[in-house]
Design a protein around this nucleic acid. Structure first.
Lengths: 208, 208
DNA sequence: AATAAAGTTAAACAAACGTTTGATTTTGCT
DNA sequence: AGCAAAATCAAACGTTTGTTTAACTTTATT
C-alpha cells in the first residue's frame, strides 16, 4: 500500500470519527484533543490533514450532504403518478436517514444553530433543494386532481420533522417506539415501520 | 425598590439573555464572557448568582420546562370527544411553542445531544410526560371507535416533529412558509396557519 | 543506498475558557 | 449618620482551547 493511500485511509478514519462525535456532541462540544484520542491519532494530524477544525467540519458537510440528496431517474418515469412518486421518494429518504444518522444529526444541529451564519445558510439551502422536489410533485398531484388541498410547506415540514425527530430524539424517541437501544431502534424492522407509517401519512393527508 | 428585588431583577435579566443565547448557539457555544457582554453585567455576576455556568443552565431548564407542560382542566370534561380534546391540546402546544421559541430550541438541543447524559434523560422524561397524555387520548379514541388505526408513537413524533422543525429550522423553515424574517414567521397569522394545519393533520390521520 | 516527500510525534504557543479573588461601591436598616 | 449585607468590579487564577513548531520516523522514488 502506498503512503498516500495509507494517508487517505487515516484521513478518512479521522473524518469518520469526527462525524460521529459532532453528531453526538455538536461542533463546540468536540475538542481537537478528544477527537485525537477517539481516533487514535496525534493531535497535530488534524491541522496537518485539514488545516483547521472548522475546515474539517466543512469537509464533512461537503462530502456527506450529497448523500441526503434525492436524485433518482425513476422519478422521471411518466407512468408513475404523483402519489407513487411521493412514496418512492419518502422511502428513499427513510432509507438514507436510517443509514446516515450521524449526518442527519449534524445537518439538523447546523440548521438549528445561529453560530456559523454562512454555513447554516449553506446547509439550509441544500435542504431546500430536497424540499422543492417534493413540492413540485405535490403540486403536480393537485393539477391532476389526484390530491386534495393541503398546506404544502407545512406538510413537507411534517415529513422531514417526523424523520428528524426520530433520528435526533435519542432516549425520548427510542423509548417511544419501544426499542431497548439504538441498534434495535435503527434496525430493518423499525425502518420498514417508518416507511409504512410515512406512506399512510401521505395517503391520508393528500389522497382524495 | 429593595436591594434584593433589584438583585432578582438583574438575575432574571441574565437568565433571559442566557436563554436566548443558549437557544441560538447551544450550551458550548456561549461563553460566560459573551453572556456578560450581551446582558450588560460583570463576568463575576454569573458565579455570584448561579454558582456556575452549568448551574445557571440547569436553572433555565428547571424554570421553563413547566411552561411546555400541558395540564388543563378542560381536558377532563367528559363532554369533549377525543378529537376535540386533541385539537385543544395541539392548539395549546402551538401557542406555547410560538411564545417560548427559545425554550423549545434549548429543549430540542438538549434532547438531541449526548453531552450531558443525565440532563438529556431528564429533559427527555419531561417530554415523554407530554407524549403520554396525547397517547392516552388517541387510545381513548380507538376504544370509542372514533379513530382509525395508526402508529401512535410515530404520529406523536409527527405532531411534535412538525412544530419542532418549524421553530428550530431558522432560514430553511421561514423561507419555506414565505416569511421574510423571524418576527413575521412567528406572528399571529402564521400561528393560526399552524393550528389550522395541525387540525387537518389530526383529522386526516385519525378520523374515520 | 541515497534523497526527497510524507507522515508522525511531543512540546510549546497564544488565546479563550470558567471561575475566584479582594477591593470597592451601593443598598437596607437602625 | 453609621454599619452590615448585598452587589459590582477589574484583575488574576489555573485549565482547556485550537494551532504551530521542529525534530523524528516512515515511505516512495531514483
Amino acid at each position: 500500500m502506498s503512503a498516500s493511500t495509507k494517508g487517505l485511509e487515516k484521513k478518512e478514519h479521522i473524518l469518520e470519527c469526527a462525524k460521529k462525535l459532532f453528531a453526538q456532541k455538536g461542533y463546540d462540544g468536540v475538542s481537537t484533543r478528544l477527537l485525537a484520542n477517539e481516533s487514535g491519532t496525534n493531535l497535530a494530524m488534524i491541522s496537518y490533514y485539514f488545516g483547521s477544525k472548522e475546515d474539517m467540519y466543512k469537509e464533512i458537510l461537503n462530502k456527506n450532504l450529497i448523500h441526503l440528496r434525492t436524485d433518482i431517474e425513476e422519478l422521471k418515469n411518466p407512468k408513475l403518478n404523483p402519489c407513487e412518486k411521493l412514496n418512492l421518494i419518502v422511502d428513499l429518504y427513510v432509507e438514507r436517514f436510517f443509514t446516515n444518522t450521524n449526518m442527519v444529526q449534524i445537518v439538523f444541529k447546523e440548521i438549528s444553530s445561529n453560530k456559523r451564519e454562512g454555513l447554516s445558510r449553506f446547509v439550509s439551502a441544500k435542504m431546500m433543494d430536497n424540499f422543492s422536489l417534493i413540492e413540485s410533485i405535490i403540486e403536480d398531484g393537485f393539477k391532476k386532481k389526484l390530491f386534495k388541498k393541503t398546506d404544502i410547506p407545512l406538510f413537507i415540514m411534517t415529513i422531514f420533522g417526523t424523520m428528524m425527530i426520530y433520528i435526533n430524539g435519542n432516549y425520548a424517541s427510542f423509548e417511544m417506539v419501544g426499542a431497548k437501544d439504538t441498534k434495535e431502534y435503527l434496525n430493518t424492522e423499525h425502518k420498514e415501520r417508518m416507511k409504512t407509517y410515512m406512506r399512510s401519512l401521505i395517503k391520508n393527508q393528500l389522497s382524495k
